[in-house]
Design a protein around this nucleic acid. Structure first.
Lengths: 207, 207
DNA sequence: GTCTATACTGAGATAGAC
DNA sequence: GTCTATCTCAGTATAGAC
């Protein structure tokens, strides 16, 4: 029976999102899911592995959508490369379309904020990330590959931080107009990618 | 005697930076500092409060330097407002001048990555942050205050993420040329702040 | 194969003697 | 101020019932 497994995954996703990873005990999860403590370790091995599987269950479809959007924008712009703003939009929209999955965005924000984005997830995301990097490389042919990599790193940080809605920045408005935040984030990150080049061209290494 | 207190602070700073907050037990700290477990709770109250004080001890001078740099750039540009790049540079350089305090940067990166930037620290940073926000407001008079606040939020995320050096982006080069990373980060964040405006002007609220 | 009951180790916190 | 002893709760491991 996979019913127990399912209940654990659903409850864990909800509680991890609500209270964060480290502030959610396994005993809390089992009490709400109505299962036994050892069942978690039987099905998932450890608390960390449970988190991995909670994330992976939802991340697959999101990453597929990201690539679909990217393909769409690239064919739309062909034979020109897709513009930077569209590439960023393709990356952000499938995750941050908050009306569809607010629970999961909250969870991902928490996971990022707690520095838990696990190696397993990181590995599974790698092919998708590589696709976006090469799209950006075509859109910004003069930007050295290394500086592009660093800017992608900065951009991920901005995105992760944006997902953890902080009270300083008008939480109420955020709830009213999530799409506004996404648009502002797209503008900010695109501006960052299009900034003047700092690094010497010579340092470049082709992918 | 404040010797015990001092030894605890020094050891905690080193171990928190090396292993992270949650992976550093109080028992590890006391064994290296040569003090008793209860001494930590006597002097600091809790593990979280210990972290707060470790951060606050070093953050004060850094924030003073930030304001000094900002003043310098503003008088230099007067009567024009200081340019965005200089404002960002004034904010980042005092912390990220890695040659001077690599231990503390590592700690701050860890703290950010673990989502622990405590409310106490956040409160103590508030006046300094407000100074920078108003400087940015003068440099970007057309940008609505709310969008400026969000962009500052995004920028902090990029900075925090940049402090957690990840292996994906050429760790070796990072160690050789930390100032290069700072310059790239300044360019990225400045580009983000100077991006086209998204939000309606009407939503603005004056500080 | 699936699940329950229970025990083990190590964490942060606290009370009270000195 | 400091130390010992102890408490509660966490994640984990295992033995054995169905």
């Amino acid at each position: 029976m996979t019913d127990t497994r399912q209940k654990i995954l659903d409850t864990a996703e909800r509680l991890f999102g609500e209270f964060g990873y480290s502030d959610t005990s396994l005993r809390h999860i089992i009490s709400e899911a109505g299962v036994n403590l050892a069942a978690i370790h039987y099905h998932f091995g450890s608390k960390q592995d449970l988190l991995d599987q909670v994330i992976m269950r939802k991340a697959g479809p999101i990453n597929e959508n990201r690539l679909k959007f990217l393909d769409h924008f690239e064919t739309e712009a062909a034979p020109q490369p897709a513009p930077v703003e569209k590439i960023i939009e393709a990356f952000l929209t499938p995750l941050l379309a908050i009306e569809k999955n607010p629970e999961f965005v909250k969870l991902m924000g928490r996971v990022h904020a707690e520095g838990l984005m696990p190696e397993i997830a990181s590995r599974n995301f790698q092919p998708m990330i590589a696709r976006f990097i090469s799209a950006l490389h075509r859109a910004l042919p003069d930007l050295p590959a290394k500086e592009l990599a660093w800017r992608a790193h900065f951009a991920l940080g901005a995105m992760a931080h944006a997902m953890t809605l902080r009270p300083e920045v008008d939480l109420e408005a955020a709830r009213e107009a999530p799409s506004m935040i996404v648009r502002m984030l797209i503008a900010f990150i695109s501006g960052g990618f299009c900034a003047p080049i700092v690094m010497d061209k010579e340092t470049e290494v082709n992918p």
